[in-house]
């Protein structure tokens, strides 16, 4: 798994590729915690190149969304979510908890 964060003026973009499982999820959690830990709470997660995601990845998404949305200070939005990953999010009942965008540009523009 590779995690590539980029900081923009009004939000942060985190691009993930590869496989998110119990071995790699801590690395994603750290990248997101680094962003929220420095007081930035508008985050786009680009999942276009994610091949696999287990519930370990879901745990990171939900915990980051809780942190971002607290005090109405921001939001984690998801961009370019592959069908299989979306199906898992749906199975877990996560779809109502996130906004989804077909591409990064729309996701960044929404924040």
């Amino acid at each position: 798994m590779d995690v590539t964060p980029s900081q923009y003026r009004h939000c942060d973009l985190v691009k993930v590729s590869g496989r998110i499982d119990s071995a790699t999820a801590p690395q994603l959690a750290k990248a997101l915690d680094d962003i929220t830990g420095s007081g930035r709470f508008k985050v786009v997660l680009d999942l276009d190149e994610v091949e696999f995601m287990s519930s370990a990845g879901l745990r990171v998404l939900i915990s980051t969304q809780k942190t971002c949305k607290r005090y109405n200070r921001g939001e984690l939005v998801l961009a370019s979510v592959p069908k299989r990953i979306y199906d898992a999010l749906e199975l877990a009942g996560f779809v109502p908890l996130f906004r989804f965008f077909d591409n990064v540009l729309d996701a960044v523009g929404s924040l």
Partner: peptide, 9 residues
Amino acid sequence: LEEREVGGI
């Protein structure tokens, strides 16, 4: 969201 847990999923 605030009550959501991932345990058991």
